[in-house]
């Protein structure tokens, strides 16, 4: 609709690896292609390197080797055009700005026009009606995360990177958000990468689920989710979905077993 839309890009990671200065090897040679306009979920045990992958795609972390290409260019190019946004694992709202103020800041950082009614719509969509002028300190953890999602969507990015966006949200609201939010990014046509710990959420939201091994992250399974859209929260209880969920779980525990790391050691 608006002319400031960036079309969804294709993201290609080749031989992507990260070893931190501390010596921690977080990601080991990852080859991955995120198709334009698709939603891909990354699941994997805690600490396996999911956030690190996301940060490398966003150009916030330099890979130790390998590279990320967004529509054939390095992430810096996309950053320059403010063509992506990240909902960080920790909501990172600026405490001296209200929910609305935080969204406005994102828009002005991205050099986008500020449209008050569009902001109100977004706030309502994430269920924060009436909290637009509240500062983050007076919001619950889940409310802050929803505000961060609204902020990430506000700039209408071509590439949307969500790091456990619903981690602190209660189960029912989670289902509601999982049902409503994809409509926005589908309507906007974004390439979405979603990190989540909830397998059912991964299945419900995405076109494809990538299961990662314990650290250093390697791909254990790459599962296509061919469920019809729009998807409703109830679908997670239908056989088609439960089969897929089962498949992801199996891959996760295979990954754990292969890494010879029992759950307790994580």
């Amino acid at each position: 609709m608006a002319p400031d839309r960036t079309p969804p890009p294709e993201v290609i990671c080749t031989g992507l690896a990260k070893v931190f200065d501390s010596g921690t090897e977080a990601v080991q040679s990852l080859d991955l292609t995120f198709a334009a306009g698709q939603t891909t979920a990354l699941v994997g045990p805690s600490g396996c390197g999911k956030s690190t992958v996301l940060r490398m795609i966003a150009g916030l972390e330099t890979p130790s080797s390998g590279e990320v290409q967004i529509d054939g260019a390095p992430p810096a190019e996309t950053l320059r055009k403010a063509g992506l946004s990240v909902a960080f694992q920790d909501p990172s709202l600026l405490p001296w700005r209200s929910v609305r103020g935080n969204i406005e800041l994102a828009l002005s950082l991205a050099r986008r026009p500020i449209d008050a009614s569009a902001i109100d719509q977004l706030i309502a969509l994430v269920g924060l009606d009436g909290f637009g002028d509240t500062r983050p300190a007076a919001l619950s953890g889940g409310m802050r995360q929803r505000a961060a999602i609204a902020r990430a969507l506000a700039t209408k990015p071509g590439l949307l990177l969500l790091d456990e966006p619903f981690g602190a949200v209660d189960e029912l609201t989670r289902q509601q958000l999982a049902q409503d939010l994809p409509r926005i990014w589908e309507a906007q046509g974004t390439t979405t990468v979603l990190v989540t710990h909830s397998v059912s959420e991964a299945v419900l939201l995405s076109d494809r689920v990538i299961v990662l091994s314990p650290r250093p992250a390697k791909i254990v399974a790459d599962i296509d989710i061919a469920l019809p859209r729009p998807r409703m929260a109830e679908m997670v209880r239908e056989t088609a979905a439960t089969d897929l969920i089962e498949q992801v779980f199996t891959a996760l525990s295979d990954g754990m077993a292969a890494a010879d790391r029992p759950l307790a050691a994580q």
């Binding site: 966003a58 916030l60 950053l79 320059r80 990240v86 990172s92 600026l94 950082l109």
Partner: peptide, 26 residues
Amino acid sequence: APDSWFDLVRSYGRGRFAALIHVRAM
């Protein structure tokens, strides 16, 4: 200011000056 606030500014393609104005100074 925690690093993640600076990441936020960078994720919209802005540099040290914007970070100084919007994050560090505040």
